[in-house]
Simulated scan of single mutants.
Amino acid sequence: MMSTTAYQVTVTGELNPGVTRESAVEAFAKLFKVAPETAEQIFSRAPMVVKKGLDESTADKIQMALSRIGVQSQVGMSEASSPAPVAEEELKPGNEITRPVPPPLEPVPQPAPPGTVEPEATIDQGEEQPGFKFKIEGRPDFAFLTVKVPGGKTLRVEASAMATMDTNMVMKTKAKGGLGRFLTSESIFINEFTAQNGPGEIGIAPASPGDLAHVFLRGETIFLQNSAFVASDMGVTVETKWQGLTKGFFSGESLFLIRCSGDGDLWFNTYGGMIMLDVDGDYVVDTGNIVAFTEGLEYSITKVGGYKSLFFSGEGFVCRFSGKGKVWIQTRSVQAFTGWVYPFRPVQNKG
């Protein structure tokens, strides 16, 4: 009797000679149609399975496509996708067949040629990866997060963000953030979802239309704009941080930031698409486009030009970062959008 053999493709984290990490991450993101920060996380956590449940021909094509952009990978045999017995020895998980990585066709990354099979946008997490297993769909415009919660574990979720959940998920509402969240018009409550009587699954839909990012904290700290928090592991401490009157008032943004620190998963969202920037030195970002930044970066609020530019250029205050770290920005600004919509508002004729 015959059985269908399934294969998987694993990114090893190694690059072909002459290929830089930055160019490989950019080419990988375009090939798999994922956000650059997602591609960066995959390389940081490699080896990592990026596609499984494939036939041998498709797995070979994906491996070749990865080789063309300078990324080394392995094709391995996974569990048989058909439960029917085989003529000789039944395949078992872990009986992987590793093949040598083919040599690069070009020393620099190039887009896949016409006819090459492009992998789907969904990335399959390897079982060895830390934290909750999750999937982000609908990005970058209307990202939707699905998290698998092990039995007995709890996930902290922003109020009103739960869209779907298993019946064994139990919700408790707790007050968090106090006066800081109240003054920023955010809900002072955060919901905690616990999987009882076995593992569960929850679907999370952020309020604003845009992208979602995931970071696994290992004792680090990330600061979020007041409306960016979506969900986190209970090992992550979420609290409000006073920016001070000068930074908060003159930036035109909230007087408070959300400080997330500790160990575990953290998800946050944007209005529009999301781009992660590596800052080493000084960098300027409009205050309305900041989503998050890592601890260690100093920032100050200044004018982008003189007072004439401030009032007539259409540009306002900017945030000047200095130091070394990461900044996440959103490709759209709520304030800019409301300003664009304002002339089209319906006006009642008083005559």
Score class of each variant (00 low, 15 high):
residue 345 R to E: 14
residue 243 Q to R: 15
residue 282 D to L: 06
residue 288 G to D: 09
residue 297 L to N: 01
residue 211 D to W: 08
residue 146 T to S: 11
residue 63 Q to P: 00
residue 187 S to W: 03
residue 178 G to R: 04
residue 329 I to V: 13
residue 117 V to G: 07
residue 84 A to H: 10
residue 19 V to L: 03
residue 277 L to P: 00
residue 325 G to H: 02
residue 4 T to H: 10
residue 173 T to G: 07
residue 21 R to W: 01
residue 71 V to C: 04
residue 344 F to I: 10
residue 302 T to N: 10
residue 55 D to C: 03
residue 116 T to Y: 13
residue 265 D to H: 04
residue 227 S to F: 00
residue 132 F to H: 07
residue 338 T to D: 14
residue 155 L to S: 07
residue 193 F to E: 06
residue 342 Y to R: 15
residue 126 G to C: 06
residue 261 S to F: 07
residue 97 I to M: 12
residue 224 L to R: 05
residue 94 G to W: 07
residue 205 A to L: 14
residue 282 D to P: 00
residue 270 T to N: 08
residue 129 Q to S: 11
residue 122 T to G: 06
residue 53 G to Q: 09
residue 41 Q to P: 03
residue 92 K to V: 13
residue 320 R to D: 00
residue 50 V to F: 14
residue 229 F to K: 10
residue 223 F to L: 15
residue 245 L to M: 12
residue 90 E to Q: 14
residue 108 V to N: 07
residue 271 Y to I: 01
residue 177 G to V: 03
residue 286 D to Q: 09
residue 140 P to D: 04
residue 309 S to G: 15
residue 323 G to I: 00
residue 133 K to W: 01
residue 106 E to K: 06
residue 17 P to R: 03
residue 274 M to H: 04
residue 106 E to D: 12
residue 72 Q to H: 02
residue 19 V to N: 00
residue 230 V to A: 11
residue 25 V to N: 10
residue 213 A to Y: 06
residue 196 Q to I: 05
residue 248 G to Y: 01
residue 345 R to C: 12
residue 312 F to Y: 12
residue 144 F to V: 08
residue 44 S to E: 15
residue 327 V to P: 02
residue 184 T to E: 14
residue 258 I to C: 02
residue 137 E to G: 04
residue 256 F to N: 01
residue 178 G to H: 07
residue 108 V to I: 09
residue 125 Q to K: 11
residue 46 A to D: 02
residue 176 K to W: 07
residue 105 L to T: 05
residue 17 P to C: 00
residue 239 E to Q: 15
residue 337 F to S: 14
residue 310 L to F: 14
